[in-house]
């Protein structure tokens, strides 16, 4: 009872802007705006990039979370603080930082460019890198939390049964923290999908290669706020549909 009032206020606070978007959306011209050239392209690019960034985050982030949660890594506090840096960094600054690291003249980028002729800025790969940079901490933190909550003695039990560390990780640790990984993955994907600042700064904006939905929305706002509202609604709808259907699946699988 004591919690009900602030809970309702909190929900209203989160939902009202969405209501504003729905109320003010130009419903009359919506269909023609949806099929406008470039909209599908931006949406597809957004989904592809957010999914790729999430895949990379899983591949690198889960082992990183394991390292933070399960090993006596020297300077672990510092490492954990470093992992959360992209969370506090304004995304635009993150984008500049990425340029300074992986740009054509960047600390690492100059060698990539010289040795392989690879240059990340202004490429779709660059979008994925920017999104992964901003979104991976969400995954790492969620998974690390899950790992800390999981009883490490199950891993010991697996070891006494003859399981190598890798087998233990795959067959015991991962299944135990699967809900945490799922939650982290959703957070990571959602954050990557909405990513704007780091993407436009690091990867630039070009339709078809680097212009994701948030970038398209931002530029539409410059000239045609109605279009921006439509694009935002579309991004919102697609992401909600995907998340809800995935959730159904997970719940269905665990029941």
């Amino acid at each position: 009872m004591v919690l009900a009032a602030p809970a309702v206020l909190g929900l209203a606070f989160l939902v009202l802007p969405l209501v504003g978007l729905l109320v003010r959306a130009p419903w009359a011209t919506l269909p023609q705006r949806l099929v406008a050239p470039g909209v599908g392209q931006a949406l597809r690019l957004s989904l592809v990039c957010a999914t790729s960034a999430t895949a990379i985050s899983l591949l690198l982030g889960v082992p990183l979370a394991w390292l933070l949660a399960r090993t006596a890594l020297p300077g672990r506090r510092v490492v954990r603080a470093l992992v959360t840096v992209p969370l506090v960094l304004p995304p635009v600054v993150g984008g500049v930082a990425l340029l300074l690291a992986f740009g054509r003249r960047g600390v690492i980028g100059q060698y990539l460019d010289a040795a392989f002729g690879v240059s990340l800025p202004f490429t779709t790969a660059g979008v994925v890198v920017a999104e992964a940079f901003v979104a991976m901490p969400f995954l790492v933190i969620a998974v690390e939390g899950a790992l800390r909550g999981a009883d490490p003695r199950y891993e010991e039990a697996a070891a006494t049964l003859g399981a190598s560390r890798w087998l233990t990780f795959r067959r015991v640790t991962l299944p135990a923290v699967a809900p945490g990984i799922a939650a982290g993955t959703v957070l990571c994907w959602a954050r990557a999908l909405g990513e704007f600042g780091a993407t436009i700064t690091f990867a630039g904006n070009f339709p078809g290669t680097t212009q994701t939905m948030p970038l398209a929305v931002y530029l539409a706002l410059e000239t045609d706020p109605d279009s921006a509202a439509v694009l935002s609604l579309m991004l919102l709808t697609v992401s909600v549909v995907i998340l809800v259907s995935l959730r159904e699946r997970w719940i269905g699988a665990s029941a």
Partner: peptide, 21 residues
């Protein structure tokens, strides 16, 4: 010798059965 390389079986106090299997 690491535990996985010992020929040892352990019954833990709270059994530690793998819940997902």
């Amino acid at each position: 010798v690491r535990p996985e390389h010992r020929s040892v079986g352990v019954v833990f106090q709270d059994y530690l059965l793998f819940g997902h299997l």
